[in-house]
Amino acid sequence: MVVFFQEWCAPWVLHAYSTVALTPNLISLVQHDFNVGTFAQFGDPSEVVRINHRTDFHDMSHLAIRQSLDAENFTDPFILMDEHTAQSHAVWWVTTTEDSEELTARWYPPVTHPGDNFTLWQSHILIQDLPYQFQLLSGGSIFLEDMIPGERYDPYDPHDPQEPPFTEGSDYATSDGARGVCRPAVINANFSEVMYTADPAITHRMGNPPPQGAVALTLEAAVLSGLVSPQPGTPYVSQWSYWFYDDPPRPGQVIRLNAEYDWDSPRWPPPGVAGRFPGPPGSLPLAGGIGRGPQGRPGQRCVRRTFGRPGLGLPGRNATRVGMIGGAAAA
Rank of each mutant, 00 (worst) to 15 (best):
V94C: 08
M60D: 11
P110G: 08
W12H: 14
R305A: 12
P269Y: 01
S138V: 01
V94T: 09
P11T: 02
V181N: 13
L217F: 09
V20P: 14
W263G: 13
T203A: 04
R152K: 10
L312F: 04
N208I: 07
P298Y: 02
G291S: 07
S175G: 05
L126G: 06
F307E: 09
T167W: 02
P251Y: 06
F307N: 13
L136P: 01
T104I: 07
Y153P: 07
M147T: 15
Y108Q: 11
S46G: 14
D129A: 04
Q231E: 12
M324V: 15
R292K: 02
L314M: 05
V30T: 13
A189M: 03
A189S: 09
P161Y: 05
T174P: 01
P271D: 09
D157F: 06
A330T: 14
L312D: 15
N73T: 13
Q253Y: 03
D33V: 10
I127L: 15
R317Q: 15
I51L: 06
D171R: 09
E193L: 00
M324K: 10
D146E: 15
T119P: 00
C9V: 15
D246Y: 04
Q67W: 00
A64I: 11
R179L: 15
G169H: 08
A201H: 01
A329P: 02
Y242S: 12
D154I: 04
P131T: 10
L14W: 06
P294V: 10
R321V: 07
A221W: 05
S68N: 06
P45W: 07
R179C: 14
H159Y: 13
G139Y: 01
D199G: 02
S88C: 10
P235M: 03
E260S: 12
F74S: 04
H89N: 09
S46N: 03
D146Y: 14
R205M: 03
Q67V: 04
A185K: 04
P209K: 09
P269E: 05
A189W: 00
L227V: 09
T104F: 01
T234I: 12
A331Y: 03
D56P: 05
E163N: 07
A259Q: 00
C302L: 13
P211L: 13
N52K: 01
I187M: 04
V30N: 07
W12T: 10
V194Y: 04
V91W: 07
L29D: 08
G169N: 09
G316W: 08
A189I: 02
D247W: 03
W92E: 10
S283I: 11
Y108P: 00
W121L: 07
S61E: 11
G299E: 08
E260C: 06
D76H: 12
I290N: 00
V49S: 06
Q128K: 12
P77N: 08
Q253S: 00
G207R: 09
F4C: 03
G279M: 02
T167K: 01
Q253N: 07
A71F: 00
A201Q: 08
P200S: 02
L224Q: 15
E220G: 06
P230C: 02
S18R: 09
A259N: 08
Q295W: 13
F134S: 13
F244D: 14
P251I: 10
M147R: 11
H159D: 15
G115S: 08
R321G: 05
T306P: 11
R297D: 01
P11Q: 03
